[in-house]
Design a protein around this nucleic acid. Structure first.
Lengths: 228, 228
DNA sequence: AACGCTGTGAGACTCAGTATCGTACGCTTG
DNA sequence: CAAGCGTACGATACTGAGTCTCACAGCGTT
C-alpha cells in the first residue's frame, strides 16, 4: 500500500524493460541493476517477477469487499454491479499504467494467466456474496454463480474495449449499459421461486393487435426455450 | 493423445507423490526416480511439472471446437450449451482422476491458477463462437461475453458440486437443469434488438386476478431494473 | 558508548525448465 | 549378416526464479 520510492522505481524500471526487451528476456537481475538496487531488494518488495506488474490487487479486492458489506442495495445483483465499478475505476485511475500493462499482458502468456487468476478472485467474492444473499432459496448456488460470472463478464467486456481503444473515452457509460443488461436479465431470476415454478411470479406480455392465437403460442414456445 | 506406458506411469507416480508429500514438496526428480526414468524423460512427456496433472486439455478443446463448428442448433446459446456437455463428459469419463485432481487443486494455488487458465480458454472459444453468430446485431460482443461466461459458469457450478460430492451421482441432470436457466435467460436476449428497443419483441404477462394497477406498475418497474 | 530497529547487500542453495550430446535398442534394406 | 537409420532414453551443463541466512550500515534512544 504505502509504496516506497524504491518499489516505485523498481516497478517503472520493470515495465520499461519488459516493453524494450520482452518479458522473458528480462531477468530480475536486469531490473534490479537498472534500478540501482540489489536482487534481494527486488524480492523484498515483490514476491515474484510478475508481481511487479500486478501490484495492489489485494488492496483493491479488500476495497471491493468493503463496499459489498456496506452496501444498502435492495438486491444482491445491484450491490455487486455497484461494487464492480470500483474495479473499473481503479483501472481508469492510472490509465497509463493500465494501458502499458494491457499491451504487455496481451503478448505474454504467463502474465495473462496471472491476470485471469486475479479476475477469478473477484468472481469468487461476488459469488459468495450473492450466495449468502440468496441462501435458502432454490438453486441459490447456481444463480449466485451465474450472476457473479455475468457481472464480471460485463465488466471485462467493457474494460477490454476501453483498453483496446487506448483509453480514449469514459468507460462508465458503456459499463452502465452493460450492467443494465445484467440487471434486467437477472432480476426475474432473483425473484423467481424456481425455473418451472410460477409461484408469485409476475410476467408482462404485449402482442401486436394483429397477432393470431398461433402467433402467441409460437412466441411462448420460443420464450420457454424448449430444447430440441 | 496416444499415451505411452511411460507417460502413464509418470502421471500416476506424480499424483501419488503429490498426495503423499504435497505438490511443492515433490520435485520432478522425485517423480522421475520413483517412476524409474530420468528427469529428461519426464520433460519429454510433459512440458512442465503441472502438465502432469492437466494432460490432454488441448485435445478436449479441439473436440469442443469441432462440435461447435458442426453444430446444427438453431441458436448460438443452444449450440454452446450442447458443446459444454463434452467438457463435463470428459471429467465424468475418468472420475477417479478428476476427483484426485480436484482435491489436489483445492490445496495448491499454482494448480488452481492453471485450472482457471484452462477454463478461460473454453470461455474464450465460446465467446468467439457466439460473437460470430451474433455479428452485426447490437451489442453483439457484450451479449457474446455474457452468454459464454454464463454457460461456463453453469458448467463449473455443476462440476464443482459433483466433485465435492465425490462423483456419487449423474451430473448431467443437474447440468441440464442449470443450462435451462441459461437458455431461458438468454433466449430473449438473443432475439432482442436492443435493451430499450421493443421492435418486434413479444413479451408475456400474467398477473394474479387480485392485482391492482399499482401492483402492476410496481412489478413492471422492478422488471425494468430501474437503477438507484 | 551500548542497544535496537530498519533497510539493504552478498552469497549460497534448491529447483524448474532448456539445450545438447551420446548411446542402446529395434527396425528395415541391401 | 551387416550396414544403416530412427526412436527413446540417459547424462550433463546451463539459465533464471525464488528462498534463506548472514553481515553491515545508518539512525535514533537511553
Amino acid at each position: 500500500m504505502a509504496r516506497s520510492p524504491t518499489s516505485q522505481r523498481l516497478a517503472e524500471t520493470a515495465i520499461r524493460l519488459f516493453n524494450e526487451r520482452g518479458y522473458d528476456e528480462t531477468t530480475v537481475d536486469d531490473i534490479a541493476a537498472r534500478a540501482g538496487v540489489s536482487r534481494s531488494t527486488f524480492f523484498r518488495y515483490y514476491r515474484s517477477k510478475d508481481d511487479v506488474i500486478f501490484p495492489d490487487h489485494d488492496a483493491l479486492l479488500a476495497k471491493v469487499e468493503a463496499r459489498l458489506t456496506a452496501s444498502t442495495a435492495d438486491t444482491a445483483i445491484v450491490a455487486v454491479c455497484d461494487a464492480v465499478r470500483i474495479v473499473l475505476a481503479h483501472y481508469v485511475e492510472d490509465a497509463e499504467v493500465s494501458l502499458r500493462r494491457y499491451r504487455l499482458v496481451g503478448r505474454v502468456p504467463a502474465l495473462r494467466h496471472r491476470e485471469i487468476a486475479s479476475v477469478a478472485r473477484y468472481q469468487r467474492l461476488f459469488r459468495e456474496y450473492v450466495g449468502d444473499w440468496l441462501a435458502g432459496t432454490p438453486d441459490a448456488a447456481l444463480r449466485a454463480e451465474l450472476m457473479a460470472s455475468s457481472v464480471v463478464a460485463a465488466h471485462n467486456q467493457v474494460l477490454r474495449g476501453w483498453l483496446r481503444a487506448g483509453g480514449s473515452y469514459d468507460p462508465f457509460e458503456p459499463l452502465d449499459h452493460a450492467l443494465q443488461y445484467v440487471i434486467r436479465t437477472f432480476r426475474h431470476l432473483e425473484n423467481l421461486e424456481g425455473p418451472r415454478d410460477g409461484g408469485d411470479q409476475v410476467v408482462v406480455a404485449a402482442f401486436p393487435r394483429s397477432a393470431s392465437p398461433d402467433d402467441v403460442m409460437d412466441a411462448i414456445r420460443a420464450h420457454l426455450g424448449s430444447r430440441s
